[in-house]
């Protein structure tokens, strides 16, 4: 099974004085759903871009199963905030795109794409055009596309950020089902506290200037959902509310402390 390790990662934009991320260490292994939560400017997206290989760290080491990451690759599937689907292909071809790039024969890759569409509850949508889909459906196609290439882990960049509240809740539940069925490690970033608490097995709270981890929590609400408890009962559980309020307090204390803190 896949094991992602980040050892003392720092990142800096060329020309900038303060780093975007400083001294980040993380591990992500099997059956984990790691959520990075933080306000804008805390370097969440930079962290995901580092793991995806779109940018390189200025210091530190990122390895997947012991192999250093250099550049983007198919073993790390990415789901983007704004779907990033290709409108000149239909839904099925979009899902099969990774396999097409890998040279898999048409029949085989289309069969795999159909399976992935069924996994995200979009069976029968294969011939639709991208612009005929709703926002939630596009994100599901994006998820199916990332899964079809059979990556070793899944990176999700605020995947439900642009969706309305109802669709977002459905998508969170769908993600937990997919996560449980595929057993792939997931790294997800979000600024939605309730989403983070509900989904995460491991939650890291990021603070800005420079982006750093200020809190690590291990949670089990997502696992409770995966084993059959309803989302409503979990979200109304006093423990859930308490955790949510605790993290909210942490975010605010970080924010009020921020001006006094010297950049480390």
């Amino acid at each position: 099974m896949a094991l992602l390790q980040l050892e003392r990662i720092s990142a800096q934009y060329p020309g900038a004085t303060t780093p975007v991320l400083a001294d980040i260490s993380l591990t992500l292994g099997p059956r984990q759903l790691l959520v990075a939560l933080g306000p804008s400017g805390s370097g969440k997206t930079s962290l995901l871009n580092l793991i995806a290989g779109f940018v390189s760290p200025s210091a530190g080491r990122i390895t997947l199963d012991g192999v250093p990451i250099s550049g983007p690759g198919a073993e790390r599937g990415v789901v983007f905030q704004d779907d990033a689907l290709l409108p000149w292909q239909d839904v099925l071809a979009n899902v099969a795109f990774g396999l097409e790039l890998a040279g898999v024969p048409r029949q085989q890759r289309e069969q795999r794409a159909q399976e992935m569409l069924a996994l995200v509850d979009l069976a029968g949508f294969g011939n639709r055009r991208i612009w005929q889909l709703s926002g939630g459906q596009k994100q599901r196609v994006g998820l199916a596309r990332a899964l079809a290439a059979d990556p070793r882990l899944l990176l999700m960049d605020e995947p439900f950020g642009a969706l309305d509240a109802f669709t977002r809740e459905q998508m969170q539940e769908l993600l937990l089902q997919v996560w449980r069925r595929t057993e792939k490690p997931v790294f997800l970033i979000t600024h939605d506290i309730e989403e983070a608490v509900f989904l995460a097995t491991d939650l890291v709270l990021l603070a800005p200037n420079p982006g750093q981890i200020v809190e690590r929590l291990q949670l089990d609400f997502g696992q409770r959902y995966a084993t059959g408890e309803s989302a409503r009962s979990i979200k109304s559980d006093p423990l859930f509310i308490e955790t949510r309020e605790y993290i909210l307090a942490q975010v605010f204390s970080q924010r009020s402390a921020a001006p006094r803190q010297e950049p480390a």
């Binding site: 995806a52 290989g53 779109f54 550049g71 983007p72 690759g73 198919a74 790390r76 599937g77 990415v78 983007f80 704004d82 990033a84 689907l85 290709l86 795109f97 990774g98 097409e100 790039l101 890998a102 596309r145 990332a146 290439a149 990176l155």
Partner: peptide, 22 residues
Amino acid sequence: DPAKLRAAQSLGATRAQLIRHV
């Protein structure tokens, strides 16, 4: 759209495939 380029790269696209498919 840079997101489309990144999406293709993260699916393993080579430089030539990026030009041809994206």
